[in-house]
Design a binder for these strands. Structure first.
Length: 817
RNA sequence: GGGCACGUAGCUCAGUUGGUUAGAGCGCUACCUUGACAUGGUAGAGGUCCGGGGUUCGAGUCCCUGCGUGCCCA
């Protein structure tokens, strides 16, 4: 062991340490490693702006677990991806570059997106390195790079061949602002939206009227039926008759269906194609006609007659006016209700008919739930989120987006018969817009005239590619001589999927679905769910209103990467946490304390080589207690980490380090260290400090590296603490542990009693004492006598008398200054 | 409306299978510059463990119920 410099300055130290990791390749995956592998399917962050503290929170927690497994000797595969296409990237590019996709043209827009993505990804990578993520940066991917496009298109073709992906002209969740179909997972519930619940009369053939209540009068022109509950006596006689819509005069059937709620409105409800998901179900089950009255950009079409061209909101106002003017408003009251909105833009979701590609979800719900149960979720209750999402699914997964920038569908359609022509595997990745299909004539109808085919004009949902991250990861070792097939056969399933709880319903769910379809196997064995970082007041941090206090880069500069990592792992697994300067400072303090403790010890351990076997003959009661506590703490911390309880593990280690080691053990052994050879104290000091440094290495990855390289590497023998062996207690340390702990507590009783006595008299703890008398039952009295040098040193008493008593607690009965 | 969390010291939280006197950090009070560290140390004050009921020799912990907060889904 050699000495450490007096001060540890993270501002100069952290960049040097990080550079060392880069140049030594300490985090490199070794495909030929014979041992157990640990493969991480890291979340590729959406490249749509700045780094968010939520990223820091989640990625650090995963990194701590990964570092732990690396030190346990696992062959870690830790890639890093970027999700940089699709609607989020488009919106980001449009805002950042001031361009509109539909104005500049598809190709120019794609280039703008790519250029911006590359810039932002470089920034992100620099940031992750500064935070100290132990990523193998050779394994970097983007979901739009050619390799990912090839994987994505190949997966699409495979699902198409098995029927799991199908194309259908079907009612589709639609955003009129983004002008694209969307998936159920992209819809947020917006609560408390004010609206009017208006009761309007439909005419009956006998001249009477049947009133219905609606919040969507603008869809009146799309009404195709009126529904009542089959058990509702008020309307039973009308079932099978017809009603006529006001204004438009359409004659529609009155039908019975259990989904009509007799307690809502008048009990009769109009069915429009389409106002909501219930309408879609009725349309299907009762085989109703189709009347689509709105355009893809949210205006009324010619079916809406005099209202054509108006926006939905304008049409609603005009129709209500017209109904009122005609005396056709029977009742109206303001309500607040929940509206499904597009998560990207907040626009209310509509239901349109469109030709879209879907992946089957609804007919295999049990399969998805069962797959989730084959994985370990940390914390376990997060599995409930996954299952409740699946149980509530109403739609297959629409993967078609009427957008510009994304992975294209490798298909063409025959203009004559609409036959789907797919690309061959050798063509991938392919853009059907600028590449002809692999056949000269339509396999369906034989059409072969010039222009017989048309390329699919759309792109895939981003999740359709990012849900393939395990399959993309399998291609990342190709440059090192391991092809994807070999990789998958050796390393499937992967070990860990870490992500925040808000994307369980998307990324986790879709990835499990794709993995089952493509491989029949679960994608990973463990899922680590993180909570959210909240602002200092405990409120949600909105992405658009980041304050300076929430800037992750500023945090690193002010408090150090280690302090930020400390903060991010100070919460129970899966919990939310508020930003707190106090916790950052606690992290900084721990960094300083560790440095000082090791530096102090290193003065005595210069050139010390610990014996292979525990030198029991040199250990006194203080030493045995310290070793027993070390063994106990190491075991507990390891058990907690095996359960992904990183915060619980660290609390154990901190208690051992700060209280037992620094406050007590170091003070107890100082006399022996200064006075003589002290082989027992040196043995314990070496092991407990090395072990604590290692136990903290996953969290405080920088200062522990500096301490290790400066003080321990020579003896421990590795080039980095992060590939050093995880501490394993010598069984001898735990021999008679119960007695050792009891003896240690007896020693601490004496220490604390003397400290209390001095404190009450406002004396320094270093104030000398003439004598003290300790009353102590057997066999603890023997332990105290063996630790006499330590007790004299820490109490500064010239004479200590140990009186053996029959029973009772250890007490200090007489203190003479 | 259903589900899942959470509710413990002024604040942020820990309390494993029910078991002595309920813990930590910060803050607060008093003191100590002690031969690693003042980004430190010592001592101290501070709690009807959200309310109610139950099981038990014994409940912060298990069960029921009510209240409050947050999230997910209708």
């Amino acid at each position: 062991m050699t000495g450490l410099p007096p001060k540890y300055d993270f501002r100069t130290a952290e960049p040097v340490i990080q550079e060392g990791w880069s140049s030594s390749g300490v985090y490199h995956f070794d495909p030929n490693h014979p041992g157990e592998a640990y493969l991480v399917d890291t979340p590729p962050p959406t490249v749509s702006g700045r780094i968010h503290v939520g990223h820091v929170f989640s990625y650090t927690q995963a990194d701590v677990m990964i570092r732990y497994h690396r030190m346990r000797g696992r062959n870690v595969f830790y890639p890093f991806g970027f999700d940089d296409n699709g609607l989020p990237t488009e919106v980001f590019t449009e805002n950042n570059r001031g361009v509109r996709a539909r104005d500049v043209g598809r190709q120019a827009f794609i280039e703008a997106c790519l250029g911006l993505s590359h810039e932002v990804e470089a920034q992100f990578e620099r940031f992750w390195k500064r935070l100290g993520l132990s990523v193998d940066w050779r394994l970097r991917y983007s979901t739009i790079d050619p390799r990912s496009r090839r994987v994505s298109q190949a997966a699409f073709l495979q699902l198409h061949e098995t029927g799991a992906a199908y194309r259908q002209e079907a009612p589709t969740l639609w955003c009129t602002s983004c002008r694209t179909g969307v998936a159920q997972a992209e819809i947020d519930d917006k609560e408390g939206v004010p609206s009017q619940f208006t009761t309007i009369p439909f005419g009956l053939d006998d001249g009477g009227e049947l009133s219905i209540a609606t919040t969507r009068p603008e869809l009146l022109a799309a009404c195709v039926a009126v529904f009542v509950n089959p058990g509702d006596d008020r309307f039973r006689h009308l079932v099978g008759s017809f009603a006529t819509t006001p204004i438009f005069g359409a004659r529609v059937p009155v039908l019975a269906d259990a989904q009509a709620d007799p307690n809502k409105g008048t009990g009769a409800v109009m069915c429009c194609t389409f106002g909501d998901v219930t309408d879609v179900g009725w349309w299907r089950n009762h085989q109703l006609p189709l009347k689509v009255v709105i355009t893809p950009d949210g205006r009324m079409n010619s079916m809406a007659g005099q209202y054509e061209g108006l926006t939905l909101a304008q049409a609603r106002a005009r129709i209500l006016d017209d109904l009122g003017a005609a005396g056709l408003v029977r009742a109206q009251r303001p309500i607040e209700h929940v509206v499904g909105v597009h998560e990207r833009c907040g626009t209310a979701i509509e239901y349109l008919l469109a030709g879209q590609w879907f992946i089957r979800l609804l007919d295999r719900k049990d399969t998805w739930i069962e797959a989730g149960r084959r994985m370990r979720w940390h914390p376990d209750h997060m599995r409930a989120r996954y299952e409740s999402w699946i149980e509530g699914l109403n739609w297959d997964w629409n993967i078609t987006r009427q957008r510009y920038y994304g992975v294209t569908f490798p298909v063409w359609y025959c203009r004559s018969c609409a036959h789907v022509v797919t690309a061959t595997r050798e063509m991938l990745p392919v853009d059907p817009q600028d590449t002809p299909p692999p056949v000269d004539a339509c396999p369906g109808c034989g059409a072969s005239e010039p222009g017989w085919h048309v390329a699919d004009p759309d792109v895939m949902d981003t999740w359709a590619t990012s849900s393939l991250s395990p399959q993309i990861c399998a291609t990342l070792a190709e440059p090192f001589g391991v092809d994807a097939t070999t990789f998958e056969s050796r390393f499937r399933p992967m070990s860990l999927r870490p992500n925040a709880h808000d994307i369980i319903r998307t990324w986790d769910f879709y990835t499990i679905v794709r993995s089952i379809y493509l491989t029949g196997d679960i994608p990973w064995t463990d899922v680590l769910i993180s909570g959210h970082a909240l602002d200092p007041a405990g409120k949600k941090i909105s992405k658009s209103k980041l304050k300076a206090a929430e800037d992750p880069t500023a945090m690193l500069e002010q408090f150090s990467a280690d302090a930020v990592r400390y903060w991010a792992t100070s919460v129970r697994t899966g919990g939310d946490t508020a930003l707190s300067e106090e916790v950052f400072r606690n992290g900084s303090r721990l960094v300083t304390k560790l440095w000082n403790a090791v530096r102090f010890a290193s003065g005595f351990l210069e050139g010390y080589a610990p014996p292979r076997t525990t030198p029991i003959e040199h250990l006194n009661a203080t030493d045995r207690w310290m070793l027993a506590r070390l063994a106990e703490t190491t075991t507990r911390a390891t058990e907690s980490l095996d359960l992904y309880e990183f915060a619980a593990a660290r609390i154990e280690v901190e208690r051992l380090f700060w209280t037992d080691l620094c406050d007590n053990y170091l003070e107890l052994v100082k006399a022996r260290l200064y006075e003589g050879d002290a082989p027992g104290a040196k043995y314990v000091l070496h092991h407990v400090l090395l072990a604590v440094t290692k136990l903290l290495a996953p969290y405080l990855s920088h200062v522990t590296e500096a301490v290790y390289l400066g003080a321990f590497a020579g003896v421990d023998g590795r080039d980095s603490i992060h590939v050093a062996a995880w501490p394993e207690p010598d069984p001898a340390w735990s021999d008679g542990a119960t007695a050792s702990i009891a003896a240690g507590n007896a020693i601490l009783e004496v220490v604390e009693a003397v400290r209390r006595w001095k404190s009450e008299r406002k004396l320094s703890v270093a104030a000398p004492l003439a004598s003290i008398v300790v009353e102590c039952p057997s066999p603890l009295d023997e332990a105290l006598r063996v630790a006499m040098t330590d007790l004299r040193g820490v109490t500064r008493a010239s004479a200590i008398e140990i009186r053996t008593v029959a029973a009772g607690p250890v007490t200090v009965t007489d203190i003479q200054a």
